[in-house]
Nucleic acid binder design. Sequence first.
DNA 1: AGAATAGTGTCTGTCAGACAGTATCGC
DNA 2: GCGATACTGTCTGACAGACACTATTCT
Lengths: 221, 221
Amino acid sequence: MIRKLYPLVLVDVALFSVADKRLQVLLVRRAQEPEAGRWALPGGALKPEEDHDLEAAARRELRRKVDLDIPHVEEVGTVSGPDRDPRGWSISVLFYALLPRDQFHAVVKDKVEAIEWVDVAKPRRRLAFDHGVQLAKALQALREKIARKALPLHLMPERFTLTALQQTCEAILDQPLEKSAFRRHLRGSTDLIDLGEQERERGRQRPAQYYRARPGFTFSK
Amino acid sequence: MIRKLYPLVLVDVALFSVADKRLQVLLVRRAQEPEAGRWALPGGALKPEEDHDLEAAARRELRRKVDLDIPHVEEVGTVSGPDRDPRGWSISVLFYALLPRDQFHAVVKDKVEAIEWVDVAKPRRRLAFDHGVQLAKALQALREKIARKALPLHLMPERFTLTALQQTCEAILDQPLEKSAFRRHLRGSTDLIDLGEQERERGRQRPAQYYRARPGFTFSK
DNA sequence: AGAATAGTGTCTGTCAGACAGTATCGC
DNA sequence: GCGATACTGTCTGACAGACACTATTCT
């Protein structure tokens, strides 16, 4: 049995997005055994011949399974053990990534029957393998980062208002934030650029300023 | 070439300790190729037949290479790629661990020529593979945790004074801390237990209270 | 008394939450 | 003017750094 010498090395990605003020994660329905027909995080086996490193493998799997090119993926950690995959001793290296929903669209591709954006808040059907645990880990990592004042600019469209940014943070943390404290904090950020343009489409109210992310901003803290 | 299908899976451990108010890390001198004779972090290949998971592999390697039984190891992350190890495409999963120096002693064992505790502050000879980078990563992870007010109780002996705990934090962060702020923070901790005993051995000064860690304390935040 | 370290009290500036206030649009 | 949302000012309490002060031991 090969798995007694060499573990299966997998990458899995929790791809988050915000739609309608709710944090969602992309799930794919597996077309192949094991766990065919069950919903899972997109991911797959490392291919040493193709991949420059594990992060590159994660990005490649996103391209292959849902045709998305995500530049920034962030490592969360690993889960490992002999029984978590029926194919034998395995390691999954977990990543998360952020997608601005209006710019890119995930589509069904290789070895996937269907894809779906699922609210992370809602009770969910059981996922394939231990992907339920992995999703919880990725969500916790993302929330801790936002709670430490990192700005989820990777989730925002080209232009956005400060209110929209606040609503995105609220969707991630699943709790309301104080507007004045939130904005006071933003004043210290060098990653936001005031475009000087105003939102004009919503009518019958004061228009908001548009901002964009500074090119090469860092998703840190 | 097997490595085109199956990457080499390794675990490496940065084992930290504090001696004489300086943060140190345990290095081993490799007895075998590759990189024989060079200093490295203790670690080695995952053994799927023996290891329950990657964390267990890290603890097993600490037993095998330096005869230490460390209950608590913490995952930092991974480094990976085709060129970081001459044996081919490899993944290293990095852990760090904390050792109270007076209680246990590392000894030379399997595949190791020598061991040495090295100050992390001092400029060091080049380490094997990319272990210099890994050490920097582990150190940063430890420092961030202590900066977030986690208490390094795993580094302390059975009984210790608050001054000793402060000096340990200062050694890790490599910067002085304010005594009164430090102690004010400690008052909120449920992980410290006042033993009601006093330090008696140092003479000609006010004796300090001894504390111990609460059994089952969490190294968190 | 003096030296040395343990431990406390207090001042002060910073910062975040809370909330009310003002600004600016369409109708 | 009114409704609605954008944006700002200010009060207040929590907390952390700085630093001086008190406490207790041995010599």
